[in-house]
Design a protein around this nucleic acid. Sequence first.
DNA 1: GACATGAAATGACCTCGGTGAATTGAATAA
DNA 2: TTATTCAATTCACCGAGGTCATTTCATGTC
Lengths: 256, 256
Amino acid sequence: MAEKPTHVDSFRVQNDRQRNQTVSTTGCQPFVLPAAESDKLERIIEASPALKKGTHLFHQGDPFMSIFVVRAGTLKTYTVTNEGEEQITGFYFPGEVVALGGIGNDEHPVSAKTLETTTVLEYPYQPLDSLAGQIPNLRTQIVSCMGKEIRDEQQMMLLLSKKTAEQRVATFLYKLSVRFKQRGYSATLFRLSMSRNEISNYLGLAVETVSRIFTRFQKQQLIKVEGKEIEILSLERLYTVSGDEKQSPEQSVQYR
Amino acid sequence: MAEKPTHVDSFRVQNDRQRNQTVSTTGCQPFVLPAAESDKLERIIEASPALKKGTHLFHQGDPFMSIFVVRAGTLKTYTVTNEGEEQITGFYFPGEVVALGGIGNDEHPVSAKTLETTTVLEYPYQPLDSLAGQIPNLRTQIVSCMGKEIRDEQQMMLLLSKKTAEQRVATFLYKLSVRFKQRGYSATLFRLSMSRNEISNYLGLAVETVSRIFTRFQKQQLIKVEGKEIEILSLERLYTVSGDEKQSPEQSVQYR
DNA sequence: GACATGAAATGACCTCGGTGAATTGAATAA
DNA sequence: TTATTCAATTCACCGAGGTCATTTCATGTC
């Protein structure tokens, strides 16, 4: 393990906006507005300091006050079952919005924790919401984000209840690739910021299963694994294995 | 089977607002507003006729135009996997909002189908959204609904990746009970509008497993099953079995 | 360097719940 | 009434993936 964070824990943005200067949000905010309105928005945003690996942004049950956008680094969100084991509900990369599940609720339904050194932008929800009342464009973008979250979770439900272990891992890697590509990183060569344990937890599998499948995929020349470094050797085949490929209807009638 | 609908299919509200009279929405709309604003809202709503069992409200891939609120009856939403099998993503009862996953997307990410004769209210999204721009209260209620959908789906992810078959079925019945109670129906005696097949699909299990567990629960005097009629004999024990009960922290330190 | 520690990989074994087949039941139709 | 059909149940069997134990590897520490 890189750092030993254990209990730095729970950062709270303490008016650390230097010299009343608005925060630069270059290239990572999901809410894009024309200059004048963008100014208003930026005035309510607070930038976090660099948060060490293992820091909580918030805990499940904390009062819901803000949503967050990742600037750099990675977050996971998770719920805790009654037996105390965690269930990871999502990983969040730069540009992605965290804590939407708290909207309309008085408390956060999940915890959010950094997987590596991470910085975020905090959007205090009440000001954000009233801005959304003045700026239709912003309102639209917020509900769009929420809609996307809903759709992503539906995909995840499908994965968890219908896919085999192989399909889950393939889907995971494929979707990571797509997300990295969208953010301008390589689609085929990247570093997993989460542990095998976290991957398996997220996918509803045992660690051992993920391990075995990584090696199997490597033997099949699908990927190249070297610790946390992943190279995808064939995105096409990976996609095929993921089970998301829509096979042409012809295929099922092909009887001759 | 009650009717044989097969392909009544895909209803579209065709200006069936009788004599320009606004639709009565007694007791089933999730969006509650003071009189004046409520009027504005009601002017954009369209009421569906009674939809027979098996009717589609919309199909996955249809252009997203409206969200819906169930007035009477039951709906299911589902996605279709590439192999053509469906994955049910939710059941919706009177007062509940359907199609939130389409917001911010040009098409519906799921299909919605009636499980019995059902009526809905249609809220065309564009007018609804611009109203939301004028009525902060309405905006709040819409995003709250979406937030709740996100939280519900997170719970479902937890169920699908961590719970045993027994826990899933218990959770399903318990949550139904809570929802019925909220709507003013009996919490302990109700009729399942969905088939065993649909239950098992939703819960990520085989039909046979659901069947076995229903009989097991009955033997254990947890519930009384008679076809689609369910009587819950002990909500407390059902909740315990569901695995959602938070056991007091003391319990785990109780070593003497 | 040697040592310690936790993550990851590998293997042997086992179990929960899926599969397939057969039976029963309930609802509609003729 | 009987025939038909599809939902639901029950049983016997099996396999994907979990569990437990061991080994290997990587990283950090002294």
